[in-house]
Write a protein that binds this DNA or RNA. Structure first.
Lengths: 217, 217
DNA sequence: GATTGTATATTTGTATACAAACGCTTGTAT
DNA sequence: ATACAAGCGTTTGTATACAAATATACAATC
């Protein structure tokens, strides 16, 4: 099958279609320039056009596809310059998120962050890349959360998908894990002692390195 | 009437409904916490639920409303902290946009920018606030354009609506016009001589002041 | 009196039917 | 042969009908 029904079955059909298409674009199953026809997708997935339309609308607002009126939607292209720009923007925003997180983090959030870092130490020792990637994502999400800024969370979540697509061909480099751990630890420690400026600088350095060799998410 | 049919009649119905609701939220016609019921809006506007759904979906993705499953969508609240955060984020991104604009601007775009600044001089002398506000918006949009970054344009356009809503009660201060002109001129000059760092700094200063007393858009 | 179960109303989620717009092909006239 | 127009097929845009989910009100039972 096409994997559609293997999705978790929580969420509405629109949600499922959305995830199916979004992942399809990120994984390259839908290529740049491909035309996404509502009817075809609906038939393939065994649903009606309505949830497909909603999914396409969402993709359009996330800038992953562009809709030509009465002509269909096509998968947008991402130049390497686009990717570069997204990295820079993420650099700016992640730094600011860390800054705010240091100022606004709650004890509960700090505890969660600490746990993530400790797990990172554990899996780094075992060189377990799969878990480390998941923990990295979790670490960053916790910081967005701790920043207390709805807007920054919103923007970074939206950028996430662009990054995924842009990154489909550039592979993860595993060797960076130990360095990555040290960086995460520095960020955590700065936040723990409420040192906003340092937290920001450490995060900027971390994102800059990650952007350079495409490791963390 | 409710003003819906006074909209320009280009664009689809969904577009028109979207603009109607978005402006309604920005202008306070829909208050924080209000429930937006598809059927009611559809009846009020004399359209079916389908375009209303699309409009609500878009508003949700712009973070202006939140949708509770099977309960309806409600207009989100904006705390003063949210507004503060949006200003900071805008500060960062506008600075970066100016930086890139200085590096990437085309002669054609430079000419347009110059024309806008000259018009600003003209209307500042006449103290014509209405035209100045429009020109200010135009100036910033041209810089987004010149930055060549699709992503930054996308994010800033989206923030624009949040800012509009958050700002509904804080009025425009007219006295700043002469200072504002000088700031725009400095930014333009830095871009003209391709001085990216200065363009960025000037823009950041400009946005910071504007955020402080709510003048420019 | 409090709690729980059921019926009902409200609202969203999805499917389908129909209309309008656009591109493309084909046919005809010059 | 080429230019232009008419017709057809494809695809989106919109309306409507129906199904599913949830809250609410009310009654029954403990």
């Amino acid at each position: 099958m096409n994997g559609f029904y293997e999705n978790k079955d929580y969420g509405s059909l629109s949600e499922k279609v959305y995830r199916f298409l979004r992942d399809g674009i990120a994984e390259g199953r839908y290529q740049t320039g491909d035309c996404l026809i509502e009817m075809k997708i609906a038939e393939e997935l065994g649903v009606s056009r309505t949830p497909v339309r909603e999914a396409l609308k969402q993709l359009e607002l996330e800038d992953l596809v562009s809709s030509h009126p009465n002509r269909g939607v096509v998968v947008k292209s991402f130049t390497s310059e686009d990717l570069q720009d997204v990295s820079t923007i993420r650099h700016l925003l992640e730094g600011q998120a860390a800054f705010w997180a240091a100022q606004r983090v709650t004890d509960e959030q700090l505890k969660e962050l600490r746990e993530v870092v400790e797990l990172m130490e554990f899996y780094t020792a075992k060189n377990d890349i799969v878990h480390l990637v998941a923990l990295d994502t979790r670490f960053h999400e916790l910081i967005y959360e701790a920043s207390g800024s709805r807007t920054i969370r919103h923007i970074l979540a939206s950028l996430h998908h662009n990054i995924r697509k842009a990154r489909q061909s550039s592979l993860t480099l595993p060797d960076r894990a130990p360095n990555s751990l040290a960086e995460h630890l520095s960020i955590y420690q700065a936040i723990e002692r409420r040192d906003a400026q340092t937290a920001k600088e450490q995060m900027e350095a971390h994102v800059a390195v990650a952007a350079g060799n495409r490791m963390s998410d």
